[in-house]
Structures are given as structure tokens and as C-alpha cells.
Amino acid sequence: MEASYSIIKKENEYRVSLTSVNQEALPDHIRVVLADENIDVSELMIERVSGKSATGQDVLHDITGWVAELFFANPNLIVYYSCDDMTPIPRRNKRGGNRNMPVNEYRSKLFTRIFDTYMASHQVTGVTNTPIRIDNYENGIGYSLFFHFIARNIHNNIVEILKDNIVEVSGK
């Protein structure tokens, strides 16, 4: 998969892409499974390149629609999303439990909320979001990483293999 999308609203420009994951980072047995089943694991990236306004529902709706369109047009696609912890979120909601939440955790929760809302409003079935959180802390100091896989239920076996490998590599 190699697709890119630019959306501009006033001074805000967002750039989105879906590109195949470089499989060199993956273990051999995973690469074999992906090749055998002709699975394309593509990474979703969303980057704001200008503007500091809060991101509107219309922008999120448009981006979601673009990703969904590509997903449903490509029957062997699994979407992988790693939540960015490098760039801030301008004017994000900081009420209640969100106040001290790291930006990548906030993005993970937002991603799940948008996914669930899209699925319910479009009455889509047979597609699942699998979130993964990796906690790397020592004596209370460290960080968490957040990842998601979006896959058709018929590809749950592939997602399970990816999950099992993460657990296995982590020595659990």
C-alpha cells in the first residue's frame, strides 16, 4: 500500500499516509506467514504540518473516511498505527482524567473512540481494533508505547500471530 492524503482547513494542514511496513524489522516466521497469506500490513501516519487550532470533527471525519475507503478496497490489508509521542496536540481536551495523560495515550484513546464511532455509525461488522500497550518502567520511571492493529475478523489469526510474537520476543 502506498497512498497519501492532504487535507487543509484554514491555516491547518494535515498529511496522512498508508504505507507498507518495512518487513525487515519483523522476524522471518512472521514474514513467511504474511507472504503466504498475501497480507499487506500498512502503517497509518497522521501529521499536522501547519496550524495550531483544535482539530475539527469534519477533518477527523474526512480522514476516517479516507482510511476506511482504502481498507475496504483492499481485502488483504491490516492497518497498523503507532501512537505518536513526539509532537504535542494543540488545544487538546485537558478536563478530568485527561489532564496528565501523555500525548500518545491520548491519541490511542482518541483512535479507539473514532474507530468505534465509525463502526457503529456505518453499521460495519467483521472488523476489529486490537490495542497493545507496552509499559517500560523501572522504579516508577519510564514510558508507555501504544499500538493498534485494525483487521478483518478473518485475519484475526494473523493479528494473534503478531501479538504472540510481541509477547514471545518480550520473554513473557
Binding site: F115, M119, N129, P131, I132, R133, D135, N136, I166, S170
Partner: peptide
């Protein structure tokens, strides 16, 4: 639509290397 989050505590060096590569 969303499965329960898989939580991994104290990831191995090997896993962190894969993540760093990604």
C-alpha cells in the same frame, strides 16, 4: 469493535530493538 488492550510490562531488549527499528 475494540478488543481488550494487550499490556506488556518490562519489554525485553529484543522487543525494544524491534520497536526502535519501526
Amino acid at each position: 469493535y475494540t478488543k481488550e488492550t494487550l499490556v506488556i510490562n518490562n519489554p525485553s531488549e529484543q522487543l525494544l530493538k524491534v520497536i526502535e527499528k519501526l
